[in-house]
């Protein structure tokens, strides 16, 4: 082995150990951050401090109020958006009334379809007021309709009683 190969080998070993060393130190912290971030998102969907979240699997959480069951939070997906898959967290109570809906991921057009993000607009808060029909947004018809349909399908699949959200009729 000559000097050049030795240099390259040594540098590779040093770099590799630096990266894996830092990863080993921060791994717990990073996992912790990720869980906290997810919990924060879920708390925002449920929007009720009294309820406890229990994880069933990656896409399903149950809600309990002290001892009694108080509903569930489910990750649903739809392909009907303008650009790729939209995933949504939907929190419901026991009879199928919506506690809240939040967009988990989407690839809708920035500035148009991204109104379904809570950070961008309060549009998605309308779901929490179940008595009221939800607005379709002009310019983002496909996106908003996809979200409403996805939530409706979820409610139809999970609950017998008809509690679907209605689109606001044209005036």
């Amino acid at each position: 082995m000559n000097f050049r190969q030795l240099t390259l080998l040594m540098l590779t070993i040093v770099s590799g150990s630096l990266v894996s060393g830092l990863y080993a130190i921060t791994r717990d912290q990073i996992n912790n951050n990720r869980e906290q971030f997810e919990e924060k998102q879920l708390d925002a969907v449920v929007n009720d401090d009294l309820l406890t979240l229990t994880k069933v699997d990656e896409t399903h959480y149950t809600l309990t109020n002290v001892d009694s069951a108080a509903g569930s939070v489910t990750l649903i997906t739809t392909q009907d958006g303008y650009n790729g898959v939209i995933t949504l967290w939907v929190a419901t109570d026991e009879v199928g009334d919506i506690r809240g809906v939040r967009t988990a991921s989407h690839r809708e057009t920035p500035g148009i379809g991204d109104i379904i993000e809570h950070e961008v607009s309060a549009w998605i808060d309308q779901f929490a007021e179940t008595a009221e029909p939800v607005d379709i947004v002009s310019g983002a018809t496909i996106t908003t309709r996809a979200v409403i349909n996805a939530v409706n399908n979820h409610l139809d699949d999970s609950f017998t009683e008809d509690s679907s959200v209605r689109e606001k009729p044209n005036e």
């Binding site: 830092l22 921060t26 990073i30 990720r34 971030f37």
Partner: peptide, 9 residues
């Protein structure tokens, strides 16, 4: 890695 551990969001 550092960003993920200190500035996750």
């Amino acid at each position: 890695i550092a960003l993920q551990s200190w500035y996750f969001e």
